Simulated scan of single mutants.
Amino acid sequence: MSEDFGANYITIMDEEGNEFELEHLDTLEYKGETYMAFFPAVPEGKQEEARPDEEYGLIILKVIHENGEEELSTLDDETELEEVYQQFMELLFEEDEE
């Protein structure tokens, strides 16, 4: 984990070997599975360096168990992704209203 960020941040590597930081927003259980929501992280003072064409949307990853370890995986099923996205939106907006 990078020292540029706090405890709610993780570093992941994409399929091309590029590392990037994600800010963990929340975790939810849905239909017996665990999902985690993240936003891409930009270190303080480096917001100006972020490319304006980069998309900074919500990233949803599924917790899977492989070889006795927890790993994060992308959701390949569009229906599953949409359902979980809606669950996170309800959860995140519910927290904002409180």
Rank of each mutant, 00 (worst) to 15 (best):
Y85Q: 09
T11N: 09
E78M: 08
H24C: 11
Y35L: 02
M36F: 10
E55S: 05
M13D: 05
T27K: 05
T79L: 14
F39D: 00
E15S: 11
Q86G: 10
L81C: 04
H24A: 11
E97F: 11
Y30H: 15
E97G: 06
A37F: 02
E82M: 14
G17S: 07
F38W: 04
M1I: 07
A41N: 00
T11V: 13
E97N: 10
Y85L: 12
E95Y: 08
M89Y: 09
L75D: 08
E69T: 07
E66V: 11
I64P: 06
V63W: 04
D77M: 12
P40T: 04
D77E: 13
A37N: 03
L92F: 03
M89E: 10
E44R: 01
K62H: 03
Y9D: 03
A50F: 06
Y9I: 00
L81F: 13
E16D: 13
E15R: 12
E90N: 14
S2L: 09
D53V: 09
T27Y: 01
F93M: 12
E15Y: 06
N18D: 09
F38A: 01
T11I: 12
D26Y: 08
D14Y: 06
L72R: 08
A37M: 03
T79F: 12
T11A: 10
E16A: 14
E55L: 07
L81D: 04
V63T: 06
N67Q: 11
K46T: 04
F38L: 04
E90P: 01
I10E: 03
T79E: 15
M36R: 15
Y9C: 06
E48A: 13
R51H: 06
T74D: 14
I60K: 01
L61C: 06
E19Q: 12
M36H: 15
A7K: 15
F39V: 00
Y85T: 10
K62V: 01
Y85I: 03
E44G: 01
P43F: 00
K31N: 12
D76N: 08
E19S: 05
I60R: 00
L22F: 05
T74W: 12
E48I: 10
G68H: 02
E16V: 11
Y35T: 01
E44M: 04
G68F: 03
P43E: 00
E21H: 11
H65T: 06
E69H: 07
I64G: 07
